Simulated scan of single mutants.
Amino acid sequence: MSTSYQDIQKQIVELQAKAEEIRRVEVSAALAQIQAIMQEFGLTLTDIGGGIKSLKSPRKPVEIKYKDTTTGNTWTGRGRAPKWLEGKDKSKFLI
């Protein structure tokens, strides 16, 4: 006797429910174990790398070196030169 598609789908749903329940139990056990270890050694979330992430200082914006006064286009001088500067003397646009 072969099983039907609906029977298999029903089994899948049942197995997924079982798996989720087992996962909840295992996560609870893991959390309890982690809490016990933290209490035993007097650890905090900061000690194990949790909580606040390291704060990086914000980068200072790069100063603009070139500006086209007629259009207002600007360029810092870093990276590839913009199209509006192609074929032009860059020294004329220095700030």
Rank of each mutant, 00 (worst) to 15 (best):
M1P: 03
M1V: 06
S4Q: 03
S4V: 02
D7V: 07
Q9C: 09
I12L: 07
I12T: 07
V13L: 11
Q16N: 08
Q16T: 08
A17Q: 07
K18R: 12
E20N: 11
E20L: 07
E21Y: 05
E21N: 06
I22W: 10
R23N: 10
R24T: 11
S28R: 12
A30M: 09
I34K: 11
I37S: 14
Q39H: 15
Q39N: 14
E40D: 11
F41N: 11
G42T: 05
T44S: 09
L45D: 13
I48R: 05
I48T: 06
G49L: 03
G50V: 05
G51N: 04
I52T: 13
K53E: 08
S54I: 13
S57Y: 13
P58E: 15
K60M: 10
V62E: 10
E63R: 09
E63K: 13
I64A: 05
K65I: 01
Y66F: 01
K67T: 04
K67G: 01
D68T: 00
T69A: 11
T70H: 09
G72C: 04
T74V: 03
G79C: 04
R80W: 07
A81W: 02
W84Y: 04
E86K: 07
E86S: 07
G87I: 00
K88F: 02
K92P: 01
F93G: 00
L94N: 05
I95L: 07
I95F: 06
I95G: 06
